[in-house]
Amino acid sequence: MIKKKYNTINDFLEDASFKNWVQQSNGTDINFWEFWIANNPDKQELVNKAKDLVLGISFKKNFVSEEKVAFEWKKLETKIQSRKAVPKRKLRFLKPMGIAASILLLVSVGFYFINQNTKITHKTNYGEILNLKLQDGSDVTLNSNSSLSYYKNESRKVWLSGEAFFQVDKKKTTNAKFWVITEDLSVEVFGTSFNVNTKKKKTAVFLEEGSIWLALKNGENKKMIPGNYISYSAKKNKILEDINLINPTIKTSWKDGSLLFDNLSLEKAMEKIEESYGYSIIFKDEESKNTLITGAVPITNIDICIKAIEKSVDVTIIKEDNSLVISKK
């Protein structure tokens, strides 16, 4: 601020310390500018002009409320999402050759009857989240690098590898159950919402709402109540964790597109990043591993994710091929 030259009005207007002097808000700046003006009488006119502009006119800012903004955003979000549901590509596809289309329809109807028992599989890549609606109306959010399969005539029985969040519709009339089957256990459901994660060679189930039964591979059954978080490994033949979560969002925030870290070490946080994006993690120093991080990062955009982490803890993250290299700033 001392060596800088002030020749035009812009130089004053863009200068934070000048503004501080005008608003008399910072002692050092006030002293500096009183001194500067006394020593630069030829700039007096320019100073006055700039001062006028900074002072300007004060308005009472009467912006719309946060609630209003949130309401308008919901409105817009709904419009965007309803647009996504009807992709334009389909229309283009339908235009040419109606005959071909009807033949195709006939063939596929035939296939439908023959292939009632087709296995359907949904797979996600790293950095991808998929929202599915099953035939019975249940909603499934499939996390990155995961797969979910079921037979067409039996969509209330699904096989999961990876992680998914389920919101199962209760079938009041038939009381039909919903099953999630993993390598370690089966989850028996009536109507409820819960999270199942088979990453890290175990199956972890978190129950958000309702009630479910776990049928473990070793024949044991276990009832879960809301808030329960249970993980089990068939290989080790034992329950690894059985706890009540105080911060359940940490386990399920991924389905809304973000990972939440609540005072987590950077090392642990980066493990989650590794799971979501598939990058391997390399720490250049030990100190960075133990830095604590709190906040949220996106699950589907690695660049924003990196930036967010770099901004909140003092590290530099460099993306190299398939790895993230972390070093102290």
Binding site: L260, D262, G295, A296, I304, K307, A308, K311, S312
Partner: peptide
């Protein structure tokens, strides 16, 4: 409370 949005807003 943690508001990811606020987090973004401040950081990005």
């Amino acid at each position: 409370n943690i508001s990811p949005l606020k987090f973004y807003m401040e950081k990005l």
